[in-house]
Design a protein around this nucleic acid. Structure first.
Lengths: 356, 356
DNA sequence: GTTTAGCACTCTAATGCTGGGAGTGCTAAG
DNA sequence: CTTAGCACTCCCAGCATTAGAGTGCTAAAC
């Protein structure tokens, strides 16, 4: 099922009634977005308590840091800590309707040209279903297996390299060569590389080649010279690493909570300067199941007032990437969490089904 | 020099002084963003006129539709029509400093992997320099010249096609085949296609192939069969058409003019649902020089309150695409126009210099 | 000991009123 | 044609007022 990161400090024991009231309060606040007062809560809780009693409980909860008042006479709202407890201990998740899952599956399982397009598709989906910003981080490609390499002469000193990596990823790059190579030489070089290294990790390829180069610097025949020059440039720069795709940022503009224009701007800037967010998502790579960051728990100031719900997705048992949503702290966790979870599973399923 | 679209209706003759006052007013409003009153304008204009006189002139200009008052006693602001006249007849452009141009050139003339990356680079640049949203529309590829085609067998029934198009564009696509082909067959097919069609327009290729197919349906030898099946799938779908890249949308959040959250949201949505904007940019393709759309002149409701400044860029004399910026109507046209113009020229220059 | 009712208190948000400032339009004089 | 003067309009900021919501505390009830 879903596992949510529980804080290391643990939560103090709260008696049943207090927990129930806290739960009601958070749910209510998530629904309405208004601070919840003692009268309202007393009425809603279904516990047949007077507002005064509820007030006492709320005062305790405030003391403990789960709630706060925006000002003296304005009900209470959950703090980050309150949300955390809610998510960890109080939330009951409604698993998704099978029908809904089926719809998600169909929308994910569509033919795409490349992983970026798939990521776009899935983040659109997430954003559409949750009305939050959907994020899909593309696979960190720690393990890049070379399947095939080909060289095509383009002009005098330019060679097009085609790398087929992993399952079905294709990459092009154009390299400059010191001297012109003809098609036959290139073909031979490619043959050699494919024979030697297909199925190996790309870094191993690089290292192996460097070793060979050192060993046999002078005694190289013409073929090997070609191979080495090609290979050096081909594997020189890491294939440009991981990246992510965001969709539905505009949903964030609708959340009353985030309507401070300047904060919103910073948030959008953050989406563009990908680095920082990547770092956050990195942390989720090796957790399993849904993870939830509330407010600044992410250690990322711009996300004050936002929560991030993520889940990693796996291919052949290996965690490949992370997807999730970003929205106001006051989001409908009971819906969002199952959606993120299901989407991750479905994406994994699609990626695990070799098509073709 | 720069040419700006002049309205078909033409502008009524305004005497020199009136024009000068209008110019001053627009410039002032662009600077401060505050409605300009008669006193201020009288002081600024350097014409030694009393506020009362200025008032009369302003009243005339309002009558003619160049100005309007937000409310009874609050100075005047330019209308779309006012901006139009300003841009067409009053604006004196400061050509860019050579140094600035040099900086732009350096930032544009960088090695990139593909046209999308180049577009991103340039739109970032535009957005950075103007503090507006930069837009670069990628080439409409009416003329796609096939330079080279290669086939790589991937698995049983899947073949990777590499198309080298135009100058140095590379495209991959993976096709499903009816029966397995081995490397030799594919090589032969590629050789045939390259020999026959390299340098031809991709549509011609398609047509020629279809003709051949019809002519010789039965008498096909094995090579031709391979060629035909490959080619059919390869050239089946048009390479996915044009597209564009936007950068620096967040700048729009800073313009006080566009701070209505909901309007801003719609604008951002528009950036995502590319269709509409594409249509707008299409119109600019065949104009030469800088074009300016003010407010709803674009025929695009979401752009109310926004202006769009564009310029096409050409390669080998052929218009390939359009770039520009989108920002509040109240933008510094005298700076923005030269920047857009220069950027288009520089981009063209880069694209015209075959590197390698 | 827990729960409750009552009450005084606080704070917000909405409302209405006020005066000052900025700017206009009009008119009549220069 | 230009200008000074003046009445007028409108916005805005500040202030007081009010109603409403919610709190904390205390003392009584269970």
């Amino acid at each position: 099922m879903y596992s949510t990161e529980s804080m290391s400090s643990g939560h103090l024991a709260l008696n049943e009634r207090t927990q129930h009231l806290l739960k009601m309060l958070v749910e209510r606040y998530i629904r309405d977005g208004q601070p919840v007062g003692s009268r309202t809560l007393a009425r809603d809780a279904g516990l047949d308590l007077s507002p005064a009693t509820v007030r006492n409980v709320m005062a305790d909860l405030e003391e403990l840091g789960y709630l706060r008042s925006p000002h003296t006479s304005a009900g209470r709202v959950p703090t980050a800590r309150g949300y955390r407890f809610f998510v960890d201990a109080l939330l009951n998740l409604r698993p998704l309707d099978d029908q809904v899952v089926e719809i998600l599956r169909q929308r994910i399982d569509q033919p795409v040209q490349n992983r970026a397009e798939l990521a776009r598709l899935v983040s659109d989906l997430l954003s559409g279903v949750t009305h939050l910003a959907g994020v899909v981080m593309l696979p960190r490609r720690n393990v890049v297996t070379l399947r095939q390499v080909e060289f095509l002469p383009l002009s005098e000193n330019r060679v097009l390299v085609i790398l087929v990596l992993n399952a079905q990823e294709v990459q092009n790059r154009i390299i400059q060569t010191c001297r012109p190579y003809n098609a036959v030489e290139l073909q031979q070089a490619a043959n050699y590389l494919n024979a030697q290294f297909a199925g190996k990790d790309i870094r191993q390829v690089r290292e192996a080649l460097l070793r060979d180069l050192r060993e046999a610097r002078d005694s190289l025949d013409r073929l090997m010279q070609t191979v080495i020059e090609m290979a050096e440039q081909t594997f020189e720069t890491e294939p440009d690493g991981d990246d992510y795709v965001v969709a539905g940022q505009t949903h964030l503009m609708q959340c009353a909570d985030l309507s401070d224009l300047d904060k919103l701007r910073q948030l959008f800037e953050a989406f563009n300067h990908k680095r920082d967010l990547l770092h956050l998502f990195d942390q989720c790579l090796h957790a399993d199941g849904v993870q939830i960051f509330i407010g600044e728990e992410s250690g990322f100031v711009v996300l004050e007032g936002c929560s991030v719900v993520t889940a990693p997705y796996t291919v052949e048992g290996q965690v490949l990437g992370v997807l999730g949503v970003i929205g106001p702290t006051r989001m409908a966790y009971d819906r969002v969490i199952p959606v993120v979870d299901a989407t991750a599973r479905l994406l994994a399923a699609v990626l695990n089904t070799p098509q073709g």
